[in-house]
């Protein structure tokens, strides 16, 4: 009698806990961060304070999208570019890519780093083989970081919104 009761309670507990466990995956996962000029930059962040902290850009251009004007703005800072778009509460960061090897991600990866370094810096990254190249995707909840390798060397590093990233 007692045993049966115990079994039942245990079974129920396990059932409840498995249900608990499944949810937690979606909660986790911070977005990748880039830091420059003393500010941390994440995709979807409000652009105004970041632009202020980064100071005068070395290049600036507005690229209209298909309809509507002046929606995307590209700010160049020599070693990296910042692309902003119109979000729900004004201008937000929508892309960021590194242009040369003078800057690195907070994890220490820069253009020219080799595959081993990338694997060490991002052990959880998903690697998509793509012909002669491979791209390491570091996915957060709403943004991801792409590290592109060609012949074993990093050739491009880009932060962008999530959704464009899954391996085909």
């Amino acid at each position: 009698m007692m045993k049966k009761r115990l079994c039942m309670i245990l079974a129920c507990l396990i059932l409840g806990l498995t249900a608990c466990g499944q949810e937690e995956q979606t909660v986790s996962g911070g977005d990748p961060v880039f830091s420059a000029g003393g500010v941390e930059i994440v995709i979807h962040a409000d652009a105004a304070p970041i632009l202020e902290a980064l100071g005068e850009p070395t290049s600036y251009s507005e690229t209209p999208s298909c309809a509507g004007e002046g929606m995307d703005k590209t700010y160049g800072y020599g070693s990296f570019y910042l692309l902003t778009g119109l979000g729900e509460d004004g201008e937000v960061v929508s892309r960021l890519w590194l242009a040369d090897d003078t800057v690195a991600t907070p994890e220490g990866i820069r253009i020219g780093s080799d595959e081993e370094q990338v694997e060490a810096a991002y052990p959880d990254a998903a690697c998509c083989e793509d012909g002669s190249c491979s791209t390491y995707w570091i996915d957060g909840a709403t943004a991801s970081l792409a590290v592109v390798l060609e012949d074993g060397k990093v050739t491009a590093i880009e932060y962008s919104a999530a959704g464009q990233t899954s391996c085909d």
Binding site: T74, L83, S160
Partner: peptide, 12 residues
């Protein structure tokens, strides 16, 4: 000037 273009991250 040509627009600065984001790098190609997805080849296929």
């Amino acid at each position: 000037d040509p627009f600065p273009s984001p790098p190609l991250t997805k080849r296929t």
